Amino acid sequence: MKKPLRIERQKVAALFIDLQEEHRHDERYLVEGYDGVLRNAARLQESARRNGIPVFHCAYIVDLADHVRPFHPIGPDGRSAFSDKDDPLTAICPEVAPRASERLLVKNEASAFGKSPLIGELRDAGVQWLVIAGVWTEACVDATVKDAINLGLHVLLVEDACGSGSLAMHQAGILNLANRLYGGAVVDTQAACALLEGSTVDAWQIEGSVPLRFTFENAAELYREL
């Protein structure tokens, strides 16, 4: 249900996940509505920077020499089937690219936490709330959100600044996360920017356990109500 939420700006950071060129140029990994996702992510970044909120970025780049998963998909050329280290499409899209002063983390797995120093850096900065946006909703965003919760962070999930291969995949991914977003909230970009400005907004926050019992018929409607 929606309840008033306010976040102390001194205790929040923003994380942008895998906003890379391959999701608008590689036909295998196109994100539906990606231009809109990028526009909303750019709005979030602008708001965070204006309010002195730390901005973190991560990029999925696979180096098979350092990648030990036995079933990782390999292309006919022997390279990773996605996000290969030698593919120029792993570059972050310029409209949401890191500034020189911002942290860019390269990851070799779904979660932005994994083996990275991210959680230590967030704790050192006193961060309690993590604003999360990026792609793909049901994959790297999902893994990162769940790790963040397990590590004791409150997650502000910005639903219209995330995306996936189809709208249905994205909406189901957001609903699944909302069902387990303990200690966090789901908002749209406008509300997220207001929170970063220090305002109080009505935000969807979980009550109980798995409250969103969605079906093929009602998933889109429940998503719109978040």
Rank of each mutant, 00 (worst) to 15 (best):
E27M: 15
Y29L: 15
V31E: 02
V31I: 15
Y34S: 03
V37H: 01
L38M: 06
R39T: 11
R39P: 00
R39W: 02
N40M: 04
N40K: 04
A41D: 04
A41Q: 01
A42L: 01
A42V: 00
Q45H: 02
Q45R: 12
Q45A: 11
E46D: 13
E46A: 14
S47V: 05
R49A: 07
R49Y: 12
R50D: 07
G52M: 06
P54H: 08
P54E: 06
P54D: 06
P54G: 05
V55P: 09
V55A: 12
F56L: 14
F56G: 06
F56K: 06
H57E: 08
C58S: 14
I61T: 14
D63K: 13
L64V: 12
L64S: 10
A65N: 15
A65W: 11
H67K: 14
H67N: 15
V68D: 15
V68T: 15
V68I: 10
R69Q: 10
R69H: 14
P70V: 08
F71G: 04
F71Q: 10
H72V: 09
I74K: 06
I74N: 08
I74Q: 08
G75W: 05
P76T: 09
P76G: 04
D77W: 13
D77G: 08
G78W: 12
G78K: 12
R79I: 07
S80T: 08
S80V: 07
A81R: 12
A81H: 04
F82M: 13
S83G: 04
D84E: 10
K85A: 09
D86C: 06
D87N: 14
P88Y: 09
C93P: 00
P94F: 01
P94W: 00
P94L: 02
E95H: 00
A97I: 07
A97V: 06
A97C: 01
P98N: 04
R99W: 07
R99Q: 10
R99A: 11
R99M: 10
R99I: 03
R99G: 13
S101M: 00
E102M: 07
R103T: 14
R103N: 03
R103Y: 03
L104M: 14
V106G: 04
K107F: 02
K107S: 04
E109G: 12
S111Y: 05
A112N: 13
F113C: 08
G114T: 01
L118E: 02
L118S: 05
I119P: 05
I119V: 14
E121G: 01
A125T: 00
A125E: 09
G126Q: 12
V127C: 11
Q128E: 15
